[in-house]
């Protein structure tokens, strides 16, 4: 059982959006298995359905058909409380637009998930400070998101995603709103933290910088998995795809 254990398993997932009278098939049957501790990138052009897949895995949206299993539990069967628990403790989310709560300081943003998880205020503050230090923002815990740069905001978001030591970190275009260098730093940070903490990172992206950090890359095209590549295959194919500067 241990060998076949998947932290995330997606089976035959389709998703149809109804835009007025038009039906849009965002996903047309996705099967995917992800082992614990893997660093997976879901790659694809915009509109390929990768964000939709990301939402399905994160339990943020329900598939039209098919199933998503987290730790071998079908998340469609979870009730409101269990889903909240899953989002609180099992999954850490990182978004393209950072989605920090604007009215709270960096530290308060990071401690909020810990408060939800029932941690005492002092402990949460202590752990929050440590996490902020870990992402390199130890000094700026009192700052509000508006007083931080994009890269710094994303660091806070990463610290927040790590707050309850989740097994899975879901990152939707984490570098999408950042410049090249900052994006690289964020990828580096994600990679390092996932290795240190043994967290599974699933990241939807079209940033080729993500490739070198990934264990596997899932290419999505028109709502289907185009191909899945391991890191070894990757170095060859990347050479063909990415135009060298």
């Amino acid at each position: 059982m241990i060998g076949s254990h998947n932290i995330v398993r997606v089976s035959g997932v389709t998703k149809v959006f109804h835009l007025g009278k038009v039906e849009l098939e965002a996903l047309r049957g996705i099967d995917l298995e992800i082992a614990p501790g893997e660093y997976i990138s879901i790659m694809g052009p915009s509109g390929s359905g990768k964000s939709t897949l990301f939402n399905m895995i994160g339990g943020l949206d329900k598939p039209t058909s098919g199933k998503v299993f987290i730790d071998e539990v079908d998340i469609a069967q979870l009730d409101a409380y269990e889903l909240a628990w899953l989002r609180c403790r099992k999954i850490g989310y990182i978004f393209q637009t950072f989605n920090l709560i604007q009215v709270m300081t960096a530290l308060e943003n990071v401690t909020l998930p810990m408060i939800f998880a029932g941690m005492g205020n002092d402990l949460a503050v202590e752990k929050g400070l440590r996490l902020l230090e870990l992402v390199g923002l130890g000094e700026r815990f009192r700052h509000k998101p508006a007083e931080l740069s994009g890269g710094q905001q994303q660091r806070v978001a990463i610290a927040r995603a790590m707050a309850n030591d989740p097994a899975i970190i879901l990152a939707d275009e984490p570098t999408g709103n950042l410049d090249l260098t900052t994006g690289g730093e964020i990828i580096e940070l994600l990679k390092r933290l996932s290795q240190e903490r043994g967290a599974t990172v699933i990241s939807a992206t079209h940033d080729f910088k993500m490739l070198s950090a990934s264990d596997r890359v899932v290419w999505i095209r028109d709502g289907r998995i185009d191909r899945i590549e391991d890191r070894e295959q990757l170095s060859i194919s990347v050479g063909q795809i990415v135009p060298r500067p």
């Binding site: 059982m1 730790d71 539990v73 079908d74 069967q77 979870l78 403790r89 099992k90 998880a117 029932g118």
Partner: peptide, 25 residues
């Protein structure tokens, strides 16, 4: 399907359980 899932998956899952409601506060 609550109980059923637990047996189908073959292993006790931390996601399921009676105390879940009290664990998010």
């Amino acid at each position: 399907v609550r109980e059923e899932i637990q047996t189908v998956s073959g292993q006790p899952s931390p996601i399921k359980g009676p105390d879940i409601a009290r664990q998010v506060v």
